[in-house]
Simulated scan of single mutants.
Amino acid sequence: MTNSFILLTGCSCGGKSTLLEALRKRGFETVQEPGRRIVSEETAGNGHALPWVNLRSFALRAVEMAKSDLTSVLNAEGLVFFDRGLIDAAVALEHSGGQTVKETLDGSRPYAKKVFVVPPWKELFAKDAERRHDFSTAVQEYDRINRTLDDLGYTIRELPQAPVSERTNTILHECGVL
């Protein structure tokens, strides 16, 4: 869609949401992870579209939410940072036995060519009420996302396991802001 849409993805509990918050505090528009929003809504409601109950339903909702997120910021000025997004949702949908990532994207490239990826970071990983999978499952998801990004022709920039300020500065420097 636009080169100003910057995707942050990677391993669960690798610091993406913390990075997004740091970018928001610096004045950038941000879009929170669809999955966390869905889990919050579903646990408050009927709880059907949860990844540990029905991964395909969850992934379909995540795809629709991510598409809606992209549409909602089409007129934004400057960079917009996404915590996960359509590619992550499409990977989950394909993994659940649904349509392929390429079918979901339908030839579109929703984010800037360079994607920032947080690596597995075991010391940060923690289960909670909304994150019930274990570290090895998170690493498998990370591997699927990286393979997909590579297959789609994105440039993967893996962020270092470093303090939030250093990671944030790396992102902004590589986006030409610093």
Rank of each mutant, 00 (worst) to 15 (best):
L93W: 05
I87H: 06
G97S: 09
G85C: 04
R132Q: 15
D134Q: 12
W121P: 09
L79G: 01
H95E: 13
D106C: 10
D106Q: 13
A92D: 14
R84W: 04
S108P: 00
W121A: 11
G98H: 04
D134K: 12
V91M: 11
L105N: 01
D106M: 10
A138S: 15
V101F: 10
K67G: 11
F125H: 11
G97P: 01
E130L: 11
A126K: 15
V117Y: 01
V117P: 05
D88M: 03
T100E: 04
F81L: 03
V118W: 09
V101C: 07
S72W: 12
D83T: 09
K102S: 13
S72Q: 14
I87N: 04
S96E: 00
K113F: 02
F82V: 02
K67P: 00
Q140F: 08
K127I: 09
N75H: 13
F82E: 07
S72F: 08
G97W: 07
K127S: 13
K113G: 00
V80A: 02
F135W: 14
K102E: 14
L74P: 00
Q140D: 13
V101A: 08
L124N: 03
K113Y: 03
S96I: 08
G78L: 08
L70S: 06
T104D: 01
P120R: 05
F81D: 01
F81I: 06
P120S: 10
E77W: 03
K114Y: 00
V139C: 12
T137S: 15
V115Q: 07
L93G: 07
V91G: 12
H133R: 11
N75P: 00
W121N: 14
L79I: 11
L93N: 06
F135T: 04
G107V: 11
G97V: 11
R84I: 06
H133W: 14
S68Y: 07
V115A: 04
E130M: 12
S96Q: 07
K67Q: 14
R109S: 13
A76Y: 05
G78I: 05
D134I: 06
T71Y: 11
V118R: 05
E123M: 11
G97E: 02
E141K: 13
A76K: 13
L93R: 05
A66N: 01
P119A: 13
K114S: 12
A126P: 08
A92F: 12
D106P: 00
V101L: 10
L93Y: 02
D88P: 04
D88F: 06
S136G: 08
R84P: 01
S72N: 14
P110C: 09
Y111C: 06
T104I: 15
W121H: 09
F82A: 07
Y111L: 12
A129V: 10
E103I: 01
A66L: 03
D128W: 07
Y111D: 01
S72R: 13
A89L: 06
R132L: 15
E94K: 04
T71F: 11
